[in-house]
Write a protein that binds this DNA or RNA. Sequence first.
DNA 1: CCTTGTGTTCTCCG
DNA 2: CCGGAGAACACAAG
Length: 286
Amino acid sequence: MPELPEVETIRRDLEQYILNLRIKKVTAISSKVLRTSLKNLQKKLLNTHITAITRRGKLLIFSLHDEKHHLLIHLKMTGQLIYRTKKFLIAGGHSLGQRIGGLPDAYTRLILTFQNGAELFLNDMRLFAYAHIVDHPTLEKTLSAFGPEPLSSDFTKNYLEIILKKRQTSIKAILLNQTLIAGIGNIYADEVCFAAGIRPDRKASTIKKDGVARLHEAIITILPLAITKRGTTFNSYVDGTGKKGNFVSHLQVYGHGGKPCPRCGTTLQKKKVAGRGTVICPQCQK
DNA sequence: CCTTGTGTTCTCCG
DNA sequence: CCGGAGAACACAAG
């Protein structure tokens, strides 16, 4: 599940490699991931280049040289974006040009080929990921639906307090709500709640000022740490070059249901909160 | 059956 | 009965 730290890792990786590379070929293997026609995708991408890569929540925004259009890519649950140099793709030529690194593979849905022979693969096992081409007004409309970036100055303790105060739903539902805070998914929602000592199923409006402060601190500490560790590879996430992230060994509760709490040793409970599998330490989280 | 991000649809309550 | 919040469902494949 690529969440903010994973998508940011991919963004930073790709920014190093694909900016200003002329796109020579656009290959759609599965049109299901296209939110526009292949024809339109080719028309907008061929013989131009990407001038900037930005991120909003879990959404990647590739801005095109025409200064009018943007390629949007969302990886949803199992999507991958992997860059391969030509050298990597043809390396080892000893086996009749067979590609190493296994790309494209059975889950490759879209390929961008650059003038230098490098390729960008959009892979997705479950076909939830998408690629779209939008103009400025559409982009603005899309972005306006997102809540503040948790690592920007817009995301203050005061803002968090305000959005929690009047809500009757669980704190976890709020952390997962992209219109309230952008970029947190199931992994980091559980990690943040554990770090803050707050039960994810607790009603948001009951969280007092000190709890809000701990939640805020947990969010702005854990997300950057996960970015420095290049994200969490639990199932299918890989970075922009196909490598796994290293944050999984730092996870305190996610995926640890039934195991002892790393802080107090109490058995971590698993239950469904906000429709998602959720791990809670009944001792440390109140 | 379970897993999950998000868009859509349904339900409930004031 | 209306509006909006929040919950439930749909999607997909292993």
